[in-house]
Design a protein around this nucleic acid. Structure first.
Lengths: 159, 159
DNA sequence: GGGTGAATACTCGGATATGGCCTGTCCGAGTTGACGCGG
DNA sequence: CCGCGTCAACTCGGACAGGCCATATCCGAGTATTCACCC
């Protein structure tokens, strides 16, 4: 149960985009970390569908953040890439055991399902409490030149 | 990123075993929930390797809990089936970006990696705080006849 | 010189192959209990 | 009747296929810019 590779790419790319207010094409964003452009594009499309990024076609087009960085949580990004499903999926095997009741939804009544759901919620809460803006502030405190360096490198890759 | 099917089987099987103090063969445990015996066996082997179950070969053999139910957390079971890896795997793409430093381990210094690690820890803590004994107490409170029903059904399947 | 039209280059977007892990199954090694035989 | 040795059945354990999702890629649809041509 490993998380998709694309999540890491999406996180860092969103941070970089938060330092740029003009659309940046996939090719440039991919070159920034030497990633496969076509595959990164797939991830960015998912972010766009989720309303995290907005896309522009044609020359001078690309992706940019659709909302303020404060309004983009890590949970949003993970959900956009990985989908909305919970980590634990209850298949209700209790329906096959003794003491089964036809009308019961064991996703609600099964004690294991409840416990796994609580853990899932703790994970999601932690992710939802962290925004791209928070990460950005953290990074800028430790590396004050990061925004300028990023903008410069993006400009170089554009040429 | 969905959790393996075997986790649900392992959880319920461990609970059932906590009500029985004699070895139960895979075939009986599988019939209890109408699961494929050979595949359930694979999961139980993983639990045995993790020290959660102990196995006995030959006639009257099978699996039983290796520790007291209080000493078996949901985290132990999940880790035994899914492996010890974290949900988020940091591939350190920052090594490919500008401002890279050769000797730096970005699994420690990257702010995203840290945040994802915190969320992972919250999830694991919640799972580690819940034991099979706790679930069992919960179930027995809501369904007092569950232990007797389970033992009876297991005895039937043995014949 | 200004406006208009087509051509062009650039970008996203979804449709299309490939590989690895989860799922599912099978057969062999080891062990225990049972049974029969001999004392 | 009791003890011992062989036998047989049962169980775990790891080795062996199949299917699905993550990975990786390509090409077509749409658009803004650019350029040339005409008025």
């Amino acid at each position: 149960m490993r998380m998709s590779q694309g999540v890491e790419w999406a996180l860092h790319t969103c941070l970089n985009l938060s330092w740029l207010d003009v659309p940046v094409p996939t090719s440039v964003l991919a070159a920034f970390y030497e990633l496969p452009p076509a595959y990164l594009n797939k991830q960015l499309q998912a972010l766009a569908r989720a309303g995290i990024l907005s896309s522009t076609s044609g020359p001078a087009g690309g992706f940019r953040l659709a909302r303020e960085p404060e309004q983009v949580s890590l949970m949003d990004i993970v959900a956009a890439i990985e989908g909305p499903d919970e980590l634990f999926r209850c298949d209700q095997i209790l329906r096959q055991g003794p003491g089964k009741h036809a009308g019961v939804d064991y996703r609600d009544s099964c004690a294991f399902s409840q416990a796994m759901h609580r853990a899932d919620l703790a994970w999601r809460s932690e992710l939802a409490a962290t925004s791209v803006a928070g990460i950005r502030a953290n990074v800028e405190r430790q590396h004050p030149k990061a925004p300028a360096n990023t903008r410069e490198r993006i400009a170089e890759l554009r040429r």
